[in-house]
């Protein structure tokens, strides 16, 4: 338990070690997390997501500098993909964050996705919790460069920044389901690029369209098992997604972006929306843990020989995969 005590005393080495234990699923991490759990829930959790190359890392660096000027401490988790072939990873986000070095109010941790598909690593949510318990005012999570469906961050952060950049696609891309729907604040980065103006105009038009279609934003999809515990949405129209133009290179527009982030957090707290999202996120986390645990327990009970026999039968087209699954479950 000394690791937890040291961490709460401000020991950064203890914080770093605990994060590793969580990533490696060490048994000791579970006890530490349990000890820290009651201290979580104080930080503003912000997710920064967007396609590869939109400038997320540089923007995280600029946002952090602005937050530091406003007197806030910042914990950063930067997720990069693991190679599906070797399992290794090249984590390069620190290259863009070198200006933050030497500041005791900032802690940066690079994290490999380790086979997880949702834009985060499996351990990211738990690591966010540890940074929260360690007392950082803001926890920033930079996701893997994402496409259209990697939206795990929406379950774990309170404010989602979606970063777009000029020249990435037309408005049909933007109307497709996915990224834009999750944005609480939309950022057009690289505003120094001459094409930024048309990207801005296009996104404004698309957001206007969204507002006409849903006066009410759709629920975040979370699988449906826990639907019954979800309360009614509050009155719609409480938050209009702002579009911020930034140049992470020069820092232009960053103070306005940070103000928009803070305004969103204030809105969440005053409207009761914060509690609603916490409930959705707790339900989603329970559901996903339940799924993992049930699966692990079932797999322990399933006889390997029986499983490979069924695989053979599926290959020979004797039974459908669905039928094979039903037989396996029946035999338990």
């Amino acid at each position: 338990m000394t690791l937890v005590e040291n961490l709460l005393g401000g020991d950064r080495r203890a914080l770093a070690r605990l994060i590793s234990q969580i990533e490696d699923d060490a048994a000791s991490a579970g006890d530490a997390l349990a000890a820290l759990f009651s201290r979580t829930g104080r930080a503003h959790r912000v997710g920064i997501t967007g396609a590869p190359g939109t400038g997320k890392s540089t923007l995280v660096s600029q946002i952090t500098r602005e937050l530091r000027q406003r007197g806030k401490t910042v914990g950063i988790v930067a997720v990069d993909p693991s190679s599906p072939f070797s399992g290794g990873a090249l984590l390069g986000d620190r290259v863009r964050m070198r200006d933050l070095s030497g500041d005791p109010g900032v802690f940066i941790r690079s994290m490999a996705s380790r086979g997880n598909m949702g834009g985060l690593a499996r351990a990211t949510a738990r690591v966010m919790r540890v940074l929260d318990a360690a007392g950082f005012d803001v926890v920033l999570v930079e996701t893997v460069g994402v496409g259209q469906l990697e939206m795990d961050i929406a379950r774990h952060a309170q404010t989602i920044l979606v970063v777009e950049a000029p020249g990435l696609g037309d408005e049909v891309q933007a109307i497709k389901a996915g990224l834009l729907e999750t944005a609480d604040v939309l950022v057009v980065n690289k505003s120094d690029d001459p094409r930024a103006e048309s990207t801005l105009a296009m996104l404004r038009a698309v957001l206007g369209l969204n507002r006409q279609v849903h006066s009410d934003r759709p629920e975040l999809h979370h699988g449906g098992l826990f639907e019954a515990v979800l309360p009614e949405r509050p009155e719609a129209g409480g938050w209009e997604v702002p579009i911020c133009a930034t140049s992470a290179l020069t820092g232009e527009g960053v103070p306005e972006l940070v103000s928009a982030m803070e305004a969103h957090y204030a809105y969440l707290r005053s409207s009761g929306e914060l509690e609603r999202r916490e409930r959705i996120s707790a339900a989603a986390e329970l559901e996903s843990l339940l799924r993992d645990t049930l699966l692990a327990r079932l797999l322990e009970k399933i006889d390997a020989a029986r499983l490979s026999e069924l695989v053979e039968r599926v290959v020979r087209r004797e039974i459908m995969p669905q039928t094979a699954v039903e037989r396996l479950l029946d035999s338990l």
Binding site: R12, R13, A16, G88, L91, R94, R98, I108
Partner: peptide, 22 residues
């Protein structure tokens, strides 16, 4: 898992990164 820090790092930056990244 390789954490790459880029060019022109001071020894202080390197030690700090090594600690944070464990």
């Amino acid at each position: 898992e390789v954490i790459y820090t880029g060019l022109r790092q001071t020894p202080e930056m390197i030690a700090e990164a090594a600690l944070q990244e464990d």
